[in-house]
Design a protein around this nucleic acid. Structure first.
Lengths: 224, 224
DNA sequence: CGGTCTGTTGAAGGATTTCAACACTCGTGG
DNA sequence: CCACGAGTGTTGAAATCCTTCAACAGACCG
């Protein structure tokens, strides 16, 4: 259970402090597509991915989903602030089989107040996510769907890409619907654009997987 | 210059601590539409609005602008993290005549490490902005332009609305282009929709100002 | 081996952008 | 003080991107 040392904002702690913090966390496994928590549920826990991938999704009234973020080991999620009638703003789902640590929010707040460096580190991570989120707003509002998908493929390649025989293979299951929900478009449009990309030699793709072959080409499309 | 006590994340400090922190800040006035800092400039300062409004804008290569946020007294902006080759991810412009406090980033980091409650408080605010940003992503990707504008008017009414003879008057200059840049649409479309809203009695609007008359009506449009 | 999930493709319809023209307001300088 | 020009707001019509509806093929699962 010393995987906690892998979490970026606990890396500033000494081994002793880490051990003390570790006792407050409890671990749990989830199977693929199992829900970890639901949007609008009372928010009581902060969680950290230890193994596997987790996706954060917002649901609309008409059943349209927005895929907000894809998390990998070391990423935190869940709630941070203890404001009253505080609810999770999104649903968290195990995108693959996953192992997740969790801690009561009140106890995490105690940790933040005890170890200022941890608070500053969490702040850094959150500020970076805010920046990323705003970049996404920019892309959603200025780029056509083609460019949005190109830019999504590039950021996924940064986070999940690993060299393989097919090129930069994204190490996570990724359906056309997942892509569509990230780009804010329909699965049909996402499919058409992925077919086009493949035809142009930019990517290689099969059922639930994608590999990037031509980063430069995608970059051009995503920035025009 | 004791307006610093107004800033949410300094309200946890004692009068003595506040005085000590205050010395590190310096104040400056800006005139309407004056640039405070530019996107991609080296990020060295953290700033706080003391008077007036400030808008945060991202520019694209083709000159399309995205209006990310509208700040009022008490709101912080600028950079938080000291990572190397750190640049401002957006441009900050005085939306009205404004007064702004600023502090070197390194000094602010010292404050964060000295007063953990301040760090936690800044974290709360940043986490809230992240939540708001993700809500915006949802609206941008699921709602038609009409709904996006309705929801923008509602959040502006929450933050800047004051009761007046015309209804909830938004206390800031607000052009059709501003609205378009927030909704990710063209000024023409924004204009058409505002005309429609006015015709339907939802709002009253003139050159650079808007008042909300029927919150419930706008809510319905923004959530359908 | 059937059923469900995923991916693909076509065609019609709709929402929004773009291009264009014009009215109005405000501030500034002659 | 007035006139001009820049900035702002409005409206129309064509073009375009994207969605939606529909049908179907293949893959994976029990």
């Amino acid at each position: 259970m010393e995987k906690l040392g892998m979490v970026p904002f606990f890396q500033v702690l000494s081994a002793d402090d880490l051990r003390q913090v570790n006792r407050k966390f409890s671990a749990r496994h989830y199977r693929r597509n199992e829900t970890i928590y639901m949007q609008d549920e009372a928010a009581t826990m902060l969680r950290v991915v230890v193994a596997g991938k987790v996706r954060l999704v917002r649901h609309t009234l008409e059943g349209k989903d927005i895929l907000l973020d894809m998390l990998k080991p070391g990423d935190y999620f869940g709630s941070l602030s203890t404001g009253k009638n505080n609810v999770y703003p999104e649903t968290a789902i195990a995108h693959t089989d996953a192992c997740v640590l969790s801690i009561r929010l009140s106890e995490f707040r105690t940790i933040l107040n005890t170890f200022p460096q941890v608070a500053v580190s969490v702040l850094d991570i959150t500020a970076n996510r805010l920046r990323a989120s705003r970049e996404k707003i920019q892309r959603l509002t200025t780029l056509p769907v083609e460019g949005r998908i190109a830019s999504i493929l590039l950021s996924l390649a940064d986070k999940f890409g690993e060299q393989s025989e097919h090129g930069l293979l994204l190490q996570l299951p990724l359906s056309r619907k997942d892509l569509a929900d990230m780009a804010g478009t329909s699965t049909e449009t996402a499919s058409r654009i992925m077919s086009q990309f493949q035809e142009d030699g930019l990517i290689t793709s099969g059922r639930q997987w994608v590999a990037v072959n031509d980063k430069a080409g995608l970059e051009e499309i995503s920035s025009e």
